[in-house]
């Protein structure tokens, strides 16, 4: 296995009195795509929201165990700095409606009050949009509102916005669930391209998507990690009976 970026160790997560995740152990390798799949309600979204501490937005949550980012326990870090290093893209595209495409991409800097030279801004916007494969489509209208783009373009804009901060890890929470098949293809190609530069954690309930683009797959079921390994192996010879049933469509 390659060098690990994130390690989840004996991790429990509670909302109120409900235990959502139970003793999760996972390691995410550098510059690889790791898919987390499972039926809805298995806790996969909760897991990646804990990785950049977005779970703290919900009241009455509790975590036990550790998540280590380059060896450091994230719960001892400043959540703000952590989130700048671990980017996130959500189920529904959410560009800032008051901002132009340009401003959306640079938003991570502007909103944080980081002063950049005009040239640096232009460079970051161009690079990020190129990485997100959106540059060619929007380069002539960077000052239009981001909300005028199509759903797939908006989602790529959100990816560009996350990439602009130069994150180490990109968390993708079912990024294609609100998109049509063509836009989904586009995003999937992009994910494969992106892993050259960034570690990707992808939550999906789409089994085919996990098999197409991930290097490693974790299968979660009712808050427990059932199986974790290379995608190729899991999809050909799953170890656990429940994994096999899930992959063959018996439940979920």
């Amino acid at each position: 296995m390659k060098e690990s970026v994130l390690e989840v160790k004996e991790f429990d997560f509670y909302i109120g009195k409900n235990q959502i995740l139970n003793k999760i152990d996972l390691t995410f390798s550098r510059k690889q795509v790791t898919a987390i799949m499972g039926p809805s309600g298995c806790g996969k979204t909760s897991l990646i929201r804990c990785i950049n501490r977005m779970h703290e937005l919900v009241q009455d949550t509790k975590v036990e165990g550790q998540i280590r980012f380059y060896g450091k326990n994230i719960f001892e870090m400043d959540p703000i700095l952590l989130r700048r290093k671990i980017g996130m893209v959500f189920q529904r595209p959410n560009p800032f409606p008051t901002m132009s495409i340009f401003e959306n991409v640079i938003a991570g800097y502007r909103l944080n009050g980081i002063k950049l030279k005009k040239a640096d801004q232009n460079r970051i916007v161009e690079e990020s949009l190129k990485k997100a494969a959106l540059w060619e489509e929007v380069k002539d209208g960077l000052h239009r509102k981001g909300t005028f783009l199509s759903g797939g373009q908006q989602q790529r804009l959100c990816i560009a916005r996350a990439l602009a901060m130069n994150p180490r890890v990109l968390l993708l929470d079912e990024p294609t669930s609100a998109l049509d098949p063509k836009a989904t293809d586009h995003i999937e190609e992009l994910i494969v391209e992106l892993k050259k530069t960034v570690t990707i954690v992808l939550v999906t309930h789409n089994i085919a998507q996990a098999s197409r683009i991930s290097d490693f797959t974790a299968f979660l079921y009712i808050g427990e990690l059932i199986e974790y390994g290379s995608t190729q192996k899991m999809f050909t010879v799953p170890e656990d009976k429940r994994t096999e049933e899930y992959l063959t469509g018996k439940f979920g």
Binding site: N52, M54, L57, I80, L81, L82, R83, R84, K85, G87, M88, F90, R92, N94, P95, F96, P97, T98, A107, G108, R110, L111, N112, G113, C158, R161, A162, M165
Partner: peptide, 23 residues
């Protein structure tokens, strides 16, 4: 205002008060 905007901003590492005031 949709909750997703607040999430988008916080996920960029923007502090809470700046998220409210600027987004």
């Amino acid at each position: 205002i949709p909750h997703s905007l607040k999430e988008a901003s916080l996920a960029l590492g923007v502090p809470y008060y700046r998220t409210i005031l600027k987004v």
